Simulated assay, not measured.
Amino acid sequence: MSEQQPSRAPEPVGAYPYTRRVGNLLFLSGVGPRQRGEPNVPGVEVDEDGNILKYDFERQCHAVFQNVRYILEEAGAEWDDLVDVTVFLTNMQDDFPVYNRLYAEYFATAQPCRTTLEINCLPTPIAIELKCIAALKDKQ
């Protein structure tokens, strides 16, 4: 087993690695849209108490996909190595159609299994988080 901390992905919000390899499987911890070194979440506007005033969900989706790609590349994997994606949304009714459309674009060739769940909230003011598993090729 091995662990790596990607340098282009956002800093974790807790004490955990972004990846953990077991055999030829690469497990990714939950990945959100935050960007490394940036205090604000892309597309999110909050008030002085931290309450979300508005958010650009499409912008968050693009940022999440980019972060997953960064993490995979840092671990020696590729986008097409993804075999399972669990999606956590905080507003299924409004955001799922947008997510589904973008997911179809990003995963036009790669076809991992997918589960989508609505949850009450995430640990930072984000509307989406992905939990992924990749199967690494023999070159690893």
Rank of each mutant, 00 (worst) to 15 (best):
E3H: 10
Q5H: 09
Q5W: 11
P6F: 02
A9E: 03
V13P: 00
Y16Q: 03
Y16I: 00
Y16R: 13
P17S: 15
P17A: 15
Y18K: 05
T19D: 09
R20S: 10
R20F: 12
L26P: 01
F27W: 10
G30L: 13
G32Y: 01
Q35I: 12
R36F: 12
R36S: 08
N40A: 15
N40D: 15
N40Y: 07
V41M: 12
V44K: 04
E45Y: 02
K54R: 15
Y55G: 01
Y55K: 07
Y55M: 06
F57H: 09
E58Y: 05
E58S: 10
R59K: 15
C61M: 10
C61R: 03
V64T: 13
V68G: 09
V68E: 04
Y70V: 04
E73A: 11
A75Q: 07
G76P: 06
W79H: 14
D80H: 14
V83A: 08
D84H: 12
V85A: 05
F88V: 02
L89K: 04
T90N: 04
N91L: 03
M92T: 02
Q93P: 00
D95A: 10
N100H: 15
A104L: 12
F107C: 10
Q111V: 07
R114F: 07
C121P: 00
I126E: 15
I126P: 00
I126A: 11
E129Q: 14
I133Q: 06
A134G: 02
